[in-house]
């Protein structure tokens, strides 16, 4: 692992953590009406996966999508603008927290329907394959989504067509309140890959180095035309399902245990011990990211609300694609 790569991933993880912390603050102060589903505790996954990706590599994301969006390079101000329901937000205030898309960074969009984005990723991968592109698609989803029919249909379809798509299951142990042990009767979700004849692997999702390395393997696999990969990232949702969740379904001890495996702390320790990064540089990175996030939040608050007339705009594209129909050869 290159030192600079790890530092960059660390920076992204901190950025995500700071963004989510600020999002919670906005929710506490009633400045956003969005249900804030935070990514806190899972940052290593988005950072480690997206570190491999260019803007031409595509992702589909979930209701817990801020981390993916940021790791893909999104503009924080426009993200906050969307959370605040402002016209300068990523969706002009029409989507909110769960529905941010940013085609410029290859983010095909977050999705409020659990498992809803997985078939979209398969279609995007099909489009790349037909175009003979070397790019690939990553579909992020949670453990809950692997019990949806869309997951199973999609893995099968991607498998038979050997599509360049990497399915990233973020197993954070909970589908809202339901522990994965109550909804899935196998030890590792990655085993589900076997049923579709594709490569599957479980990964320590709280260790950004493991995530990065296994993603590297997955990228090489899909790019060599061997078909899709399912990576199960084992992680934990440190905060509630959304801000305001009473979390009566788990114990404080359980949460505390996972806090000891905090992906940012783990990475920080590694940077200090294995790469000799000084605590001054680490705190400098943290300060820079905090400032970046808070500045973006402050600027987003200055954005205007959407115009009322905008309510009925953007539903349809009224223009038609320019295709010149060619008569069939007789």
């Amino acid at each position: 692992m290159e030192k600079q790569t790890l530092i960059e991933m660390f920076r992204i993880m901190v950025r995500i953590r700071e963004f989510e912390s600020e999002a919670i603050e906005l929710a506490k102060r009633n400045e956003t009406r969005a249900a804030v589903h935070t990514y806190i505790g899972q940052e290593a996954i988005a950072a480690g996966v997206c570190a491999h990706m260019s803007n031409q590599d595509l992702i589909t994301s979930t209701h817990r999508g801020h981390g993916h969006c940021i790791a893909k390079g999104a503009d924080l101000e426009r993200m906050f603008g969307e959370l605040l329901g402002r016209d300068g937000g990523y969706c002009k205030g029409k989507g909110g927290s769960m529905h941010i898309a940013d085609l410029s960074t290859g983010n095909l969009g977050a999705n409020g329907i659990v498992g809803g984005g997985i078939p979209l990723a398969v279609g995007a991968a099909l489009s790349l394959k037909i175009s003979k592109s070397k790019n690939y698609v990553v579909s992020f989803f949670g453990d809950g989504a692997t019990n949806q029919g869309s997951f199973h249909e999609s893995l099968n379809l991607a498998s038979i067509w050997a599509l360049p798509v990497i399915f990233i299951c973020e197993n954070n142990e909970y589908a809202i309140s339901t522990n994965v042990s109550k909804s899935i009767n196998i030890e590792n979700i990655s085993e589900r890959a076997t049923a579709y004849g594709i490569l599957g692997k479980s990964v320590d999702g709280n260790n950004v180095v493991s995530v990065y390395d296994d993603m590297q393997m997955a990228v090489e696999h899909v790019q060599s035309g061997k078909g899709p990969v399912l990576l199960e990232m084992k992680t934990y949702r440190i905060k509630g399902h959304y801000f305001g969740d009473n979390q009566n379904y788990r114990t404080r001890e359980e949460v505390d245990l996972w806090k000891q495996k905090d992906p940012i702390n783990t990475c920080e320790t590694k940077l200090q011990n294995d790469y000799g990064l000084s605590s001054e540089i680490i705190s400098k990175i943290k300060k820079e990211e905090t400032k970046k996030v808070l500045d973006a939040s402050t600027r987003a608050k200055l954005m205007s609300e959407p115009e009322i007339d905008d309510l009925t705009e953007d539903l349809y594209d009224l223009s038609f694609h320019n295709i010149k129909w060619i008569s069939l050869q007789k």
């Binding site: 595509l58 589909t60 095909l108 969009g109 809803g116 997985i118 078939p119 979209l120 990723a121 398969v122 279609g123 995007a124 991968a125 099909l126 489009s127 790349l128 037909i130 869309s150 249909e153 999609s154 379809l157």
Partner: peptide, 10 residues
Amino acid sequence: VGAGVGAAIA
């Protein structure tokens, strides 16, 4: 249908 939607977006 989902693959159709995804390919269209892409």
